[in-house]
């Protein structure tokens, strides 16, 4: 990893990059942003189509409990991976299971589970803050480049490659099952299996991005770029690529600004992402002539 950091530091010294990239944590943050940003943008298109936006928020909130469970299970303070990924996956799969076994509406199930994970999270936080450094938990909640370490970057890279390949390979099926389950079934697909698979992939990406963006704001980066792209895209191809572009710009420029200003990276990424959304809203008559979202403002 030091070899890569040295290249960036060299560029920063020569003036090719802003001087803040002389700091290792900023280089690490930029690499994480460039890896996870495009993937969040692409996955966001299916999240928006499946109306799973607040499902993502619930997973983010479950992360608070996940970190606490990891600490209580004896994981190192800067690497609570089993607690974090394990608990968030259990919550995500539980919500999908309840959804497929009942006729409850999506938002009702999310409301029920959100209340549970928040309640559990608060109790566990009180237990662990008396024993551990609270800084790691803050990093998960709001996003913190300082707590992002080499291990996190490696985990994020591996997760992104695996999820990216599986997501791309199954994209058409995910989209068809999201568009209409009956038709997907008639075409020989299993919408239930596809839903479990997508939710698993989405949870891995969301959890991997928590230290960069924060549990409270991860919803923004998975939903807002896709929503902006939805406004102006004339077809599915542009929907995905615009969402990827918006998400990458948001993560990279948000990270850069957070290095210049004394604010958490997640907050700036959220604001840049929102600015792009409103930009798309204002310029959509110029950008799209035949898209489906041409209502009057």
């Amino acid at each position: 990893m030091d070899f890569i950091y040295d290249i960036f530091k060299n560029w920063a010294t020569r003036g090719y990059l802003p001087s803040i990239f002389e700091h290792t944590f900023m280089i690490r943050g930029l690499l994480a942003a460039l890896i996870i940003g495009p993937l969040l943008g692409a996955i966001g298109t299916v999240v928006v189509t499946k109306k799973l936006s607040f499902f993502t928020q619930t997973i983010g909130n479950a992360a608070m409990s996940g970190v606490a469970i990891g600490l209580l299970l004896g994981e190192p303070v800067d690497g609570t991976y089993a607690g974090l990924y394990g608990f968030c996956l259990i919550v995500a799969l539980l919500m999908t299971f309840v959804k497929n076994r009942t006729r409850l509406a999506n938002d009702t199930i999310i409301g029920v589970v959100l209340a549970q994970v928040l309640g559990l999270g608060i109790i566990l936080m009180i237990v662990v803050t008396s024993q551990f450094n609270i800084h790691q938990v803050e990093g998960i909640l709001f996003g913190s480049l300082i707590t992002l370490n080499d291990q996190d970057l490696i985990a994020l890279t591996i997760a992104s490659v695996v999820v990216g390949v599986l997501f791309a390979f199954n994209f058409n099926q995910f989209m068809l099952a999201s568009f209409n389950r009956t038709l997907a079934k008639a075409r020989g697909l299993s919408p239930v299996f596809l839903e479990y698979l997508f939710v698993t992939l989405m949870t891995i990406v969301v959890v991997s991005s928590l230290k960069l963006i924060g549990a409270l704001l991860v919803l923004v980066l998975i939903v807002v770029p896709a929503a902006g792209a939805q406004l102006v895209a004339p077809n599915l191809r542009w929907f995905v690529w615009l969402s990827v572009i918006f998400s990458t710009i948001s993560t990279a420029s948000g990270l850069l600004l957070s290095g210049l200003l004394p604010v958490p990276s997640g907050a700036v990424i959220a604001l840049v992402s929102s600015a792009l959304f409103y930009g798309a809203l204002v310029f959509r008559p110029l950008l799209s002539r035949s898209g489906p979202n041409q209502g009057e403002i």
Binding site: T49, N172, F179, N235, P292, N293
Partner: peptide, 25 residues
Amino acid sequence: LEFDHSVPITVFDFLFLMLKKMPVF
């Protein structure tokens, strides 16, 4: 076929999703 009319999906995309494995994008 109940679906979200705001999803930017053309007739070409719709059929492509069903005919091909290669991701539409």
